[in-house]
Write a protein that binds this DNA or RNA. Structure first.
Length: 290
DNA sequence: TCCTTATGTACAA
DNA sequence: TGTACCTAAGGAC
C-alpha cells in the first residue's frame, strides 16, 4: 500500500523501533543474504525517505562485536552505506513484537531487536547502496511534499512548460515525488481539475493550491497511516451515507469509485487507463476547460 | 484452485 | 507502448 505517506511513516517507525541499537539483519528468502550478513549486528543510525524511496542507514559495528574488532571510534565504522528499499506495487512491511516468529520464505529482509521485528516482502528494490548512489536517487526525484525543505517550484517549472496531461505529470516522480494513483486522483478532484488538462494550462494559483493541499493531505496520511481525502462536510457521518468498506480503508471522492455516484453531484465517476494505471474522475466536478 | 487486481517502476523496441 | 518483476487478497468456480 505504498504512496509517499506510507514510506515516510515507515521511516519513522523504523527509527522508533530499531534506531540507535544493534539490529539483527537477515534475508530468509535469500535474495539479500550477502548484504544482510554485512549489516547483521550493526546499529541503525538514521533513516531517510524521499518520495516512495526508503533509506535505512547502518553504522559501525558495536564495540567488541565486529569481525576484525577495533570497535572504538572510527574503528570498523566506515560508512556501510544505506539499505535502499522501494516497495513497488506489491511490497509490504509488517512489524511485530519480539520474539519474531519463524519467517515465511517470502521475507526478503528481516530486522529484529530485543523488542521488535520487521518483515519486508515483495519489494521491487532492496539493495545496499553507497552514499553517492543514494545521492543519485535524490537527484532524479522531484520535490516531495513530505520533505520539509522542499517546495513546489521545481515541479511548477516542469509542469508549466509541459503539454503532458496533469494526471501523467503528477505520477512522474521526476516532477513530484511521492504522489501515487490515489493522491493523484483525489487532489485533482478536490481542485476541480480535469485530469486531461495539459500541464501548461494550469494556472499558478491552481498549482500552488494543489501543492499546499498535497502537503496537508500527505502529512495526515503519515499520521493516520492511510489515505483520507474527503473534507469534513463530505464524510459519511456528515452526509449520512455508508462508510467505504474497502481494503485500503480511507474515505475518498473518486479513487476506485468508477460508476458510483459522485459524493457532490451524483454524476457517475468515470475511469480510464492512463499510462498503465487506472485514472478516476468526475466529469461534472472536473470539467474540461476547452 | 484459478483468475483478477493492486497505493510502482524500469527497460526494450 | 508493451512487458517483466515482486506478493497477497478476494471472488468466481
Amino acid at each position: 500500500m505504498p504512496e509517499g505517506h506510507t514510506i515516510h511513516r515507515l521511516a519513522e517507525d523504523h527509527l522508533d523501533r530499531f534506531g540507535g541499537r544493534p539490529v539483527r539483519v537477515s534475508s530468509p528468502q535469500g535474495k539479500f543474504s550477502d548484504s544482510a550478513a554485512l549489516l547483521d549486528g550493526r546499529v541503525l543510525e538514521r533513516v531517510d525517505a524521499h518520495g516512495k524511496h526508503l533509506f535505512l542507514g547502518f553504522g559501525e559495528t558495536p564495540e567488541g562485536e565486529g569481525p576484525g574488532g577495533n570497535g572504538g571510534s572510527g574503528g570498523s565504522g566506515e560508512d556501510l552505506g544505506w539499505v535502499h528499499i522501494h516497495l513497488g506495487l506489491f511490497g509490504k512491511v509488517a512489524f511485530g513484537p519480539a520474539p519474531a516468529p519463524p519467517p515465511t520464505d517470502t521475507v526478503r529482509l528481516r530486522l529484529a531487536s530485543g523488542t521488535a521485528y520487521m518483515d519486508l516482502r515483495g519489494p521491487t528494490t532492496c539493495a545496499l547502496i553507497t552514499a553517492p548512489e543514494k545521492g543519485a536517487i535524490h537527484d532524479r526525484l522531484g520535490p516531495d511534499p513530505l520533505r520539509p525543505a522542499d517546495d513546489g517550484e521545481k515541479a511548477w517549472a516542469r509542469i508549466s512548460r509541459s503539454r503532458t496531461t496533469v494526471a501523467a505529470l503528477l505520477m512522474d516522480q521526476k516532477v513530484i515525488a511521492g504522489v501515487g494513483n490515489v493522491y493523484r486522483a483525489e487532489v485533482l478532484f478536490r481542485h476541480g481539475i480535469d485530469p486531461y488538462r495539459p500541464g501548461k494550462d494550469l494556472t499558478r494559483p491552481e498549482w500552488d493550491a494543489v501543492w499546499a493541499d498535497l502537503v496537508a493531505l500527505m502529512r495526515e496520511g503519515v499520521r493516520n497511516n492511510r489515505i483520507d481525502t474527503v473534507r469534513p462536510e463530505h464524510t459519511p457521518e456528515a452526509m449520512n451515507r455508508p462508510p467505504r468498506v474497502d481494503d485500503h480503508g480511507g474515505e475518498v471522492y473518486v479513487y476506485r469509485r468508477a460508476q458510483m455516484p459522485c459524493h457532490l453531484c451524483a454524476t457517475e465517476i468515470r475511469t480510464a487507463p492512463l499510462a498503465a494505471r487506472n485514472l478516476f474522475w468526475c466529469p461534472t466536478c472536473q470539467p474540461p476547460v476547452n
